[in-house]
Amino acid sequence: MSQRAIPYMQFRGGSSKGLFFLAGDLPADEAARNQLLLSALGRDGRQIDGLGGGNPLTSKAAIVSLSSRDDADIDYLFVQVVVGENRVDTTANCGNILAGVGPFAVEAGLVPVSSAETRVRVHMRNSGKVCELVLQTPQGAMTYCGDARIDGVPGTSAAVICNYDDVAGSACGSLLPTGNVVDVVDGIEMTCVDNGMPVVVMRAADLGISGYETPEQLNGNEALKARLQKIRLQIGPKMNLGDVDGAAVPKMCMISAPSHGGAINTRTFIPYQCHDAVGVLGAVSVATACILPNSVAQNITQLGEGNPLQLSVEHPSGEFSVSLAIDYSAELPRVTQAGLLRTARLLSHGDLYIAEAC
């Protein structure tokens, strides 16, 4: 069996990790590129013959190149390998992997280091939106050492600040893709929001749970999972997502009152398993639901004051802090920028090998 070498880097970005590639090192043809990524990460559920970890959070890829846009430095395409299904999904963004895109661009020589902090504007090809990353680059190089801490990741690292510019409608075309603040499916009220990530927000109590169960408990609740899937299949087309059977979005998020001083507590299915945390852009969409008048979150959320507004989104392994700059001049509040703290670390750098036919 002959093998083909492909240059790559592997980063932990936020609470995920993935393989990072220069676009020029991959096939230009989309189908051929996707087949290569499946081989690189692994096609079966264990991903035993690839570099994926057998988990959606570790089965991700980023494809990066210089951008031709005036408002961006680089282009970034996120690719999710759907574990065990031998296919990829490029529908949604991934804010965790995005945190590694800036460091990758510096390490790969795509962008120069400017000062103690380097700002990299990233065009997210999945959504067409732009995010500014603020990287720590003292002494003219990337550093991964620092005192920033995020839940779901051990230890501390250098901060990566992610400032998202007006990401409403990233996948669905509008902030409220159904046109409503509240929809009802199978008797369950929900607020459907796409502020960087399509999320269906529902009250946990309406689904017969407390919202404080462990992910293991919820993943063992087959009746709940079947009910969520039935709702998901009905609301997906109404969110302009078409048939969402097997798709990565929308995320299904059940909310309850905060228990650790935050703004809201969450349990999120991404898409069919309840995860230990809430995704980066998922947290932005949930936080946005919290500020919408008459949403399902209105009487549950504990909101502070100020603009930008600081919200702590609680999840099973901790919390996710979101800063929302809000324009209150329209009928509904509009988030003009969302700021989040992430960290990233370079894990490996070299060539991976793709098996070719004998």
Rank of each mutant, 00 (worst) to 15 (best):
P198Y: 02
P198R: 02
V199W: 03
V199E: 06
V199R: 05
V200C: 14
V201W: 05
M202Y: 10
M202R: 06
M202S: 10
A204W: 05
A204T: 09
A205C: 13
D206A: 15
D206W: 07
L207Y: 12
G208T: 05
G208L: 05
G208I: 07
S210N: 04
S210L: 11
G211V: 05
G211W: 05
G211L: 06
G211S: 08
Y212C: 04
Y212N: 07
E213T: 10
T214R: 11
E216A: 13
E216Y: 00
E216Q: 12
Q217S: 12
L218H: 04
L218R: 04
N219P: 01
N219W: 01
G220A: 08
G220V: 09
G220Y: 10
N221V: 00
E222K: 10
E222Q: 12
E222R: 11
E222D: 13
E222P: 00
A223V: 13
L224G: 11
L224D: 09
L224H: 12
L224E: 08
L224T: 11
A226R: 12
A226Y: 00
R227T: 15
R227I: 03
R227N: 12
R227L: 12
R227C: 13
L228Y: 08
L228A: 08
Q229F: 11
Q229A: 12
K230C: 07
K230W: 00
K230F: 01
R232F: 13
R232D: 14
L233N: 11
L233R: 15
L233E: 14
Q234A: 15
I235F: 05
I235Y: 08
I235L: 05
G236S: 11
G236L: 10
K238D: 10
K238A: 15
M239T: 02
M239L: 01
M239W: 03
M239K: 00
N240A: 15
N240L: 06
L241D: 02
L241Y: 03
L241F: 09
L241T: 04
L241A: 02
G242Y: 01
D243I: 06
D243Y: 03
V244K: 10
V244G: 09
D245L: 06
D245H: 08
D245V: 00
G246P: 03
G246K: 01
A247P: 00
A247H: 10
A247F: 00
A248V: 15
A248Y: 02
A248P: 03
V249A: 15
P250E: 02
P250A: 02
K251V: 08
K251Y: 11
M252W: 05
C253W: 05
C253G: 07
C253A: 15
M254V: 07
M254K: 07
M254A: 04
M254H: 03
I255L: 15
I255E: 09
I255A: 14
